[in-house]
């Protein structure tokens, strides 16, 4: 409750915001426009795991090598 009350106080700061309000009718079209399109997510055709240890376990069971994509910033996230 305290956090909600605090939010009410903080959220009442005078606004300098200038962006146009969005119309509810725009939601679906904008959502679709922003989300990934099928042809730009080819890297997701690979069933990436996210734990090297889990990959070890699966590789040992399957008799396969591991391929690790290691980046500063998670490869399946913002980079």
């Amino acid at each position: 409750m305290r956090s909600v009350l605090l939010a009410s106080l903080l959220l009442s700061v005078p606004t300098a915001h200038a962006a146009e309000p969005l119309k509810f009718e725009q939601l679906g079209k904008l959502h679709t426009l922003i989300k990934p399109q099928a042809d730009e997510e080819k890297f997701m055709q690979i069933p990436w795991l996210t734990s090297v240890w889990d990959a070890r376990q699966q590789a040992a069971r399957a008799g396969k090598p591991i391929l690790l994509w290691e980046m500063d910033g998670h490869p399946l996230s913002c980079v």
């Binding site: 990436w48 795991l49 996210t50 090598p65 500063d72």
Partner: peptide, 24 residues
């Protein structure tokens, strides 16, 4: 990882995993 041949090679032969080096 947008290359069709590489995707096929990985899916057929490897256990693929992706990780954030900051943590690892």
């Amino acid at each position: 990882f947008a290359d069709a041949k590489i995707i096929q090679l990985i899916n057929d032969n490897f256990i693929p995993v992706a990780a954030d080096d900051w943590y690892q």
